[in-house]
Structure formats: C-alpha cells, structure tokens
Design a protein around this nucleic acid. Sequence first.
DNA 1: CTGAAAGCGCTTACAG
DNA 2: CTGAAAGCGCTTACAG
Lengths: 341, 341
Amino acid sequence: MMKNKIPTLKEIAEKLGISISTVSRALNDHQDISEVTKERVKALAADLNYIPNIFAKGFRTHKTNIIGVVVPNITHYFTTTLIRGILEEASLQGYRVIISESNNDVDKQTEMLNTMIQFGVDGVLMSLSKMTRDISSILKIMNTLPLILFDKASNKIPCTQVVINEEEATYNAIEHLINIGKRRIAIIKESEFSYNSEKRFEGYLRALKENNLPIDEKIILSVDDISMIQGKRMTNVLMSLKQKPDAIFAITDSAAIGVIKTLKKLHVKIPEEVAVVGFSNSINSTIIEPMLTTIDQPGQKIGATAVKYLIEEINHPNEIFINKTIEIRSNLIIRNSTFKV
Amino acid sequence: MMKNKIPTLKEIAEKLGISISTVSRALNDHQDISEVTKERVKALAADLNYIPNIFAKGFRTHKTNIIGVVVPNITHYFTTTLIRGILEEASLQGYRVIISESNNDVDKQTEMLNTMIQFGVDGVLMSLSKMTRDISSILKIMNTLPLILFDKASNKIPCTQVVINEEEATYNAIEHLINIGKRRIAIIKESEFSYNSEKRFEGYLRALKENNLPIDEKIILSVDDISMIQGKRMTNVLMSLKQKPDAIFAITDSAAIGVIKTLKKLHVKIPEEVAVVGFSNSINSTIIEPMLTTIDQPGQKIGATAVKYLIEEINHPNEIFINKTIEIRSNLIIRNSTFKV
DNA sequence: CTGAAAGCGCTTACAG
DNA sequence: CTGAAAGCGCTTACAG
C-alpha cells in the first residue's frame, strides 16, 4: 500500500521562503516570532496536514510524552477502571500510554519495566505483581525513571503510592457486620505476600479487637489464589467447623461469590444465618443473588490521581520528592447479602 | 531525583578504541564484523547496561515497533481478552502497544487515530465504535498507515478484518433452541448500526427460515444500548404479549442476564417455559442462576491473529494486500438456561 | 574487516 | 524579529 508522506519543517520553510528555525518557533508559539509570521506558518502547516515527528522531537528533547503502565492482570474489571482513569487523565495532559501485563510473574514484571525504559517512556505507573519480594530491579529502575505505584503497592519501595484506604474500608465493613449482630466473623484472605490482603487483614483484626471480639485462627483462612473456586472450598471448610461462623468476609468479590454459591448449595440462609461481604464492587456482585455487600473502589480516580503525581515528577526531574502515600476513599455498598431491606 | 545516564554507542566505541559504526554493526550482528569484535562489544555493552535509544533508532529507520490499538470500551471483559492476545503476540514479536479508548464516540475515535499517527505507531488495530458511519477519516488514515479491524468490523472499510463467525455462531445457537423444542424465539438486538448485531441478526433469520419457522416482527426487539437494564425492559415487553415467546436470544450476555433476572421475578420457569441464550461467555454468565447458555468467543486468539496480520503488513509496506476477512471459530456453550442436565 | 561521514527532523544557544 | 549551525543517537552507503 502506498503511504502518504507527512511534510517536515523543511518543506514548510522552503514553501514560505523562511528558515526552519523560524518555522519551528512559529509552530511552538515562541515569543520572538511576529504574529504575521506565526499565522502564515500555521496556516500552511494546517494546509499540508503537518504533524510534528514525535520521534525527532523526543529524540531531541529527551521527552516522549509516553507513560508506561504495568498491571498484573488486565482482565480484572477493577483493573480496567484503573486503566480508564489513566488513559483519560494522560490524554488530557497530552500523554500516551503503553500498557503491559506482568501476569503476576515477577520476572516478567522486571522484563516489562526494562522494555518500558527502552521505549523511552517518561515515567512508569505500576501495580505490583503478587510475590514481588526482590525489589532490587525496581529500585534500579527508579534511578533511571520516575515511578509511581498504584493499587497494589508496597511500603518497602520508596516512591509515591496511590491506594485506597484498605485498612479503614475493611474496618468499616467488619463493623457493619458487628452492627447487624454478627459475632463470629470469618475472613478469607491471601496466603502469599500481598499488600492489599495484609492491609485488609489489619482492618479486620482492628475491628474485632476494638469491639472486644475474640480472634480465632480457625476462621482465618488463607488461600494462594483468591478465586471463586477457593471461595467455594473455604466455605465448605468453614461450614464443617463445630463452631460455624455467622459471617464471612472475603477479600475479593470473586471469592465472596464462591462463598454465596456454596452457602446456597448448603441451604444456609443469607444473611440470617451467615452474612457475606466482598471487596471491589465488581459487576458480578450485582448479578449474584442475593446481591453482594462489598466495597466500592473508585478505580478511575485512583488511575487519574496516579497520572497526576507521575507527571508532576516527570516535569521536575531534579527535585527530590517526598514519597507520599495517597489514600483514596472507598465506600461500603450494603446489599442483601448482609442486610435485607 | 537524579537519574542514571544510559550509555551510548559513542561511549562504548571510545572505551574500546573503535568506531561508532563498528559498535553499531557488532550489536546488530552484522556479517562484516569479526566474532572477536562482536564479543568484545557485546560484553562491554552488557556491562554498561547499554540500552539502544529506540527514539534515535526509530527516528533513523522510520520504525518505532509500536502498535496502536483503539477499542470502544476497555472495561468489557471480552475486550480485555482481546487486548491480552494483542499484548502477548506483540511482545513476542518485539512490539509495544499503545492503547486508547474511543468510548463509542466517533469523533474521539478519529482523534485517537490521529494521535496514534503523531506518536509514530507502525500500524493500527481498531475495533469500531458504534455509529461509525462516516468512514472518510479512517480511509485517510489508511493512506498513511497499515490498519486492521478486529471484532467490531465493517465491510465498507477496505482492509483486513479479524472477526468471529458471528452469523454461523448465532445460527447454531438458534438451531440448538429449535432442537430442544422451541418454536417461538425472540431476539433482542441493537437498533443502531452495529456490525456484530447485524451479523447475528442474519444468523437468527437464516436459522428460522431454514427450519420453516415464521418470522414475527413482534418478537424482534431493538434497543439503543444493549445492556442488562434493556434486557429487563424488553423481557417485560415480551412477556406481556398475547403470544409469548418460548425462548429469548439476546445478542449480549449482559442483556441475557437482564432477561433471566426478569423472568425469575415473573416466576417464569427457565428453560422449561422460556429458554435464554446470550453471547460472549462473560464471567457473569456463570454467576447468574440458572447459568447462561452462550457463545464463547476466543478473544485472545482474535487479538493475536490481528497482530500477526498487522505486522505482516508493516513488514511489507509497498505490497498491495488483498483484504481478507478472517473468521475465528466460536463455540456454543450449553448451560442450564436452555438445557438441564 | 573497519572507519569517516552524511543524514533522519527537530530544537535552541548564539549571532545579528 | 530571523537565520545559520550544532547536535540529540543511531544506521548505512561509500571508501578503503
């Protein structure tokens, strides 16, 4: 297929009988250039469909206006809302976004970061893969590029982090269960190192303690992979205990949906006998019956906020940034799995 | 933050006392260079963590190894599977992916395409926004860059298209309903111009005709926005008809889930009184009870295939490509909404 | 087998 | 207010 040629500054300059420098400056609205010249240049540029060669520009100015994003799993609904926020805010600020998936594989994550650098991104937004223990490669990258963590973060990495109020959100959810009269609240969390899981667990523990409820290891269950299937398995475990729980909090909606499905199969009444709470406010949480009480995380806002902080760092490459942790508020959405209207 | 400097060919050349040209050639495994030199150069490059400046390279060779992707809505699960396939195949072939969302807004779609060009992508993969009637801007872009359509395609645009066998898949689904004894099959489709909706409607019509079933306009419903809410509304319409349908085919899972929810509210037995079929095999289709019979679309394969064809075109910029339509096979997944085991 | 040099399209310090 | 020229980091035709 024959492709059109995109005109260059040189061609515009020649057609107008002026220098390339003047054309460049006119297009960039440089103060030195007269209005008349600016207008002539801009008119011709528009006419010829001039598009600046971003590679020549980026090559020259060491800036590409591209942001790299690394996420563990792009198919999670919540992740897509984060990405939507990132795309929107980036676009507003004149940035493009390169996305890659680490598939929760730490080596792949490192590889992705390296290609990001190679592709000249101006900065990186990352949500950590599970099991990211060795942070040396990440620290190395931080020497080269601004990096901001979002959603799946880590206190060990000295950079700005944009997260939700995981601990508090869970605290509120557990407190809600206590308010509706539940006293024996089980939790299904992740066994592997996971920032979100740990924070949520802390909120769970604090809520029990502050309400003088006993902490019972038997109803604190950890799974490798926090999925619907594991939710089902763990529910069978919990409901075969001598002292069954009267509520189950799962740290993800998918696990919570597994819980509901199994409780229904066991003919356990929800929420009267056992109440269920999830985390994420995924679409699924409104499909399941009874609909799931869960925590709504404003993904778009988190994504957009992360972009703002990143561009701030990109624009001030020589400043030392104090590494803030920005907590975005989430909301408990009460539905029929805990409280019937 | 102070950032590390990435070494250049020049530094390697100086340290080794050879020319830049030789270093460049050694790194690119040029045949002219001796093995000894190659090894020395590569060793030092590895040592210094040399990363080629892709912008200098792209600028020089007019190739960026970046693919642009435009999708209507990134939060749809099926879209994320398409993207996953694109990311994987692109990564295998050494390409990065810039993603943007058109939000089903035709103007935004055009804008996105233009920024893609500006950012020097080597080619574009696009899934059309609804209501893309004016294709002039797309045709214009095809003069500049290779473009391939996937999933939401259009016969009017002369380019390679990667889609599923929409018509045949629907035909099979309707035939399945006929096989289980259904005779009055309603369809809920989109009213706006939509490639997928039209193809599915064609399959529906053909199945009825070939089985000598009457086509009744009263049970052919069109909605603007094919959502769960519309599925609910349309079910109320259908179930208040004198001659109620004994099966409902909705062209998306979300609408089909709305159908099931409403049928349950109306105490209609599924599938005995009314069977339900969706399209997509979304996660939701297994959450709803009864689980939804639907059509599984191999998103990853579609995405990967689209990338392959695009890179083929990128690598042969002066060839005229015959615009093929590649149909990827989908599968009917039979579940309890049509057939109880 | 290796090197000197041109050039990709742009920006910008310097000079006028 | 405008221009000539250098240079960003790379590749490659040309010369040896």
